[in-house]
Design a binder for these strands. Structure first.
Ligand SMILES: [Mn+2]
Ligand SMILES: [Mn+2]
Ligand SMILES: [Mn+2]
Ligand SMILES: [Mn+2]
Lengths: 219, 219
DNA sequence: TTATATATTTAAGTTCGCTTAAATTTATAA
DNA sequence: TTATAAATTTAAGCGAACTTAAATATATAA
């Protein structure tokens, strides 16, 4: 397969599987920002080519081959992100969009050389794990969304969702980066927002944002 | 413009302009390995979009904008080649095909950062000059094809055509690399081939190959 | 259970970049 | 100059990846 669209479909499917390992066309369409009709169309092709299990009106599953392909795309994407951030000094809120293009234009050979050059990084600049050549993903620390914390919990930021538009640049603005310590001061009942301390400053973040920042509880 | 094909057309046009600054559709088609009809089609679009001057049955010229765009593509291409060869250690006969894809997927920002990281290289791994941000190309040494040399001339390899299939890997096999010294022993009248010394070994290369290796005469 | 809302598929149509075949123009050679 | 060859354009058509609108199936709520 040598195709930008199909590769983005597979990645989007893999990233958004539910607990049952499925995804609905409607969600996929919204993640890819295209029409439902286009998704139906493409699902037939991906199914014909053996990358997804698809039956009309049923949830979409990846085949073994499809899952491997998707994980390899994540590998390419994340290794490029590390390179752009770490080697070229590009800010973490810009690397995703660039990697979104580069991932389709680089042979496995380039990716393997890059990985070696970068000394085998384990996570991308947003804290997501990098699959190895065989699609194996190291099981990472147990993390929870900030929304799961309780009052007075102290936690360390491990991962921030890199798939949400403008989230990273906003999060940067309020002082959050990987490894940063936060302390939950208050959880507001009526809107689910969270009041917390970052660098000795009080910051209130909405429930929506809190649900996309993943942390490791300290003690 | 955000298009692989159009970008490759512009680059191919620029690289193959004749002394009059023009190229014929037929040559362009063969360089791009597509039909003449496809070229006619695309020329209308490139003309409509202001990148080429085109009138039916006349030679194709680049507009100012078209030339700038083409040179920027060469810049991207060659900077990627330097990175792949120099930083990742990919052999010089493999980097061209990879760069052919990467050139379309990288913002000017990435290219500028890469250029800085590489410490502003002046030529790509095949000896071709790298245009700067403004499209300026440093005028390089005066070179001649090996076919232009005379018996007993000594010369240094400065540039090898990177656009000819399998040329680089062949040339590598017979011991030629950038900077290598050669001595012309004999020029065969009947087929234009050249007999020369490389590393104290006698090597005969065809006229076609000799015409794609560029050297600087020594003394 | 039935009405209504939502999700999904089907149908028809568009743009892009290509193809082959036929028509036409330009170049070359007798 | 004229016949022939070569280059170029035109015409028709294809697959990929989209779109919008309409039809149909499924989910949800009264
Ligand atoms: Mn992508
Ligand atoms: Mn990421
Ligand atoms: Mn290219
Ligand atoms: Mn080159």
């Amino acid at each position: 397969m040598d195709n930008v669209s199909q590769e983005d479909y597979l990645t989007a499917i893999y990233r958004n599987l539910d607990e049952a390992g499925e995804i609905k066309p409607n969600l996929l369409a919204s993640k890819l920002e295209i029409s439902n009709a286009a998704v139906t169309d493409m699902l037939r092709k991906l199914s014909r080519d053996g990358f997804v299990d698809y039956q009309k009106y049923k949830g979409i599953k990846l085949t073994g081959e499809g899952e491997l392909y998707a994980k390899n795309m994540l590998r390419r994407h994340r290794i490029w992100e590390v390179f752009l951030h770490q080697t070229l000094g590009m800010p973490w809120d810009k690397v995703h969009d660039e990697a979104e293009k580069l991932e389709h234009s680089s042979s496995d050979e380039i990716i393997n050389l890059l990985e070696e050059f970068l000394e085998y990084p384990e996570v991308d600049p947003h804290g997501y794990p990098i699959p190895d050549k065989n699609g194996k993903i190291k099981k990472s620390k147990t993390v929870v969304a900030i929304t799961e914390l309780n009052e007075n919990d102290t936690a360390k930021v491990i991962r921030v969702n890199d798939d949400v538009k403008n989230l990273l640049s906003y999060v940067t603005k309020i002082g959050i980066s990987l490894g940063k310590e936060i302390i939950v001061k208050d959880k507001l009942e009526y809107d689910g927002s969270v009041l917390m301390m970052i660098d000795r400053k009080e910051v209130n973040i909405s429930n929506k944002i809190a649900s996309n920042i993943f942390v490791e509880k300290i003690k």
